[in-house]
Simulated assay, not measured.
Amino acid sequence: MSMLHIFALNEPISVTHTHLTRQKGEVAVLPPLAEWLGVEAIDTDEIELFAVNDLSDMGLSDYITLAFAPETAIPASTVTRLDALEGAVLLAPDKALSAPATPGPKATLIASLALAQADHGADLPKAKVAPLPSSAPPARHEVGPPLALYALIAMAILAALIFFVGWS
């Protein structure tokens, strides 16, 4: 079972490092998070680090529910603790940590939540892939000369008649 660990950071943090900032190509200089959590290494591509007030009106518990899909509803007491946090938080799934975290004085474990897992562990059958039908080129329909051409020919004939017959 994969877990998401939520840490309150007891140090002022001015950096934001989330899935969105990484997708935008932003590079953050991170504090020594591995040292703060008492682990050898952290996969920084899997964590989120941000100030809680970056969420504006959204509670941290709502953000976690939407972004990480906990396996069960977050318990009410944990929701209260999460939504009361101020300052910076670190969201770290198990796969981001090289070992179980033993946070020091610069980080406090607030909660660990089980994350939803795929409910089907077997290999799925290969889909039969049929080649797309080749579409015939669009039918071309003949387009007659434009109306202006007919008008020009009619005026030329009328001018020729007037010229040769004259104004009688």
Rank of each mutant, 00 (worst) to 15 (best):
S2Y: 07
M3T: 14
H5V: 04
H5S: 14
I6F: 08
I6S: 01
F7V: 01
F7T: 02
A8R: 10
E11G: 04
E11W: 02
E11T: 15
P12S: 06
V15G: 05
H17E: 02
H17M: 02
T18W: 01
T21H: 06
R22M: 07
Q23H: 13
K24G: 09
E26Q: 15
E26S: 08
V27N: 12
A28E: 02
A28Q: 04
V29Y: 09
L30P: 02
P31I: 03
P32V: 03
A34S: 07
G38H: 03
V39M: 06
I42R: 00
I47R: 02
E48C: 06
L49S: 01
F50S: 00
A51K: 12
V52C: 05
N53D: 15
D54I: 00
L55S: 04
L55I: 07
L55R: 03
S56Y: 13
S56V: 15
D57C: 08
L60S: 04
S61C: 07
D62W: 11
Y63H: 11
T65G: 11
L66H: 09
A67H: 10
F68W: 15
F68N: 07
F68C: 09
A69E: 13
P70L: 04
P70D: 09
I74V: 10
P75Y: 08
P75S: 04
V79K: 06
T80G: 10
A84Y: 01
A84L: 05
L85I: 01
E86N: 12
E86D: 13
A88G: 00
L90A: 04
P93T: 05
K95Q: 14
L97F: 07
T102P: 03
K106G: 00
K106R: 14
A107R: 04
A107E: 03
T108D: 09
L113T: 02
A114V: 10
L115I: 06
A116W: 15
A116Q: 13
A118W: 09
G121N: 13
A122W: 07
A122S: 11
A122I: 01
D123A: 15
D123G: 14
D123I: 12
P125G: 08
K126T: 11
V129A: 12
P131L: 09
L132I: 11
L132H: 13
P133K: 12
A136Q: 14
P138Q: 15
P138W: 06
G144V: 11
P146V: 11
P146I: 08
L147Q: 13
L149Y: 11
Y150A: 13
A151K: 10
L152S: 14
M155D: 10
M155G: 11
A156W: 10
A156H: 07
A159N: 10
A159V: 13
A159D: 08
A160V: 08
L161Y: 09
F164A: 13
G166C: 00
W167F: 10
S168G: 15
